[in-house]
Amino acid sequence: MTTRSGPEPGRGRAHDGPDPGLDAIMSERRHLINIAYRLLGSLAEAEDAVQEAYARWYAMSSERRDAVDSPGAWLTTVTSRVCLNLLGSARVRRETYVGEWIPEPLPERTEWSTARPDGGAVDPADRVTLDESVNLAFLVVLESMTPAERVAFILHDVFCHSFAEVGEIVGRTPAACRQLASSARRRIRAARPSPAPAAQHADIVRDFKQAWEAKDIDALIGLLDPDATAVADGGGLATTFLHPIEGGEQIAHAWVELARRKPGDMTFLERKVNGQPGLVAQQDGATVTVFAFDVAGDRIRHIWVVRNPEKLHRWTTKTCAGYC
Rank of each mutant, 00 (worst) to 15 (best):
M1K: 14
T3S: 10
R4I: 08
D23F: 04
A24W: 01
A24G: 02
I25W: 03
S27P: 00
S27E: 00
N34A: 03
Y37T: 05
Y37H: 10
S42P: 08
E47T: 06
Q51S: 12
W57L: 11
Y58N: 11
A59E: 07
S61C: 09
S62Y: 08
D66K: 02
A67Q: 15
G72Q: 04
T79H: 05
S80W: 13
L84C: 13
L84S: 12
N85K: 03
N85G: 03
G88V: 15
R93G: 08
E95L: 15
Y97R: 12
V98E: 15
P103K: 02
R109L: 07
T110F: 00
W112F: 09
A115G: 02
P117D: 01
G119C: 03
G119E: 06
A121C: 01
V122E: 00
V128Y: 03
T129V: 15
T129N: 11
A137K: 00
V141M: 04
L142R: 07
F153R: 00
I154Q: 06
L155Q: 09
D157C: 13
V166W: 02
G171V: 07
G171A: 10
T173W: 01
T173G: 02
P174M: 15
Q179H: 04
R187W: 13
P195N: 05
I204H: 05
A214Q: 02
D216W: 06
I217E: 14
A219M: 15
I221W: 12
G222Y: 12
L224G: 06
A228R: 08
A230C: 14
F241L: 15
P244H: 01
P244C: 03
I245H: 02
G248P: 14
Q250D: 07
A254H: 15
A259R: 03
K262D: 04
F268I: 08
R271K: 13
V273T: 02
G275T: 11
P277N: 03
G278E: 03
L279P: 08
Q282I: 08
G285H: 09
A286I: 12
F291K: 04
T317C: 01
A321H: 09
C324L: 06
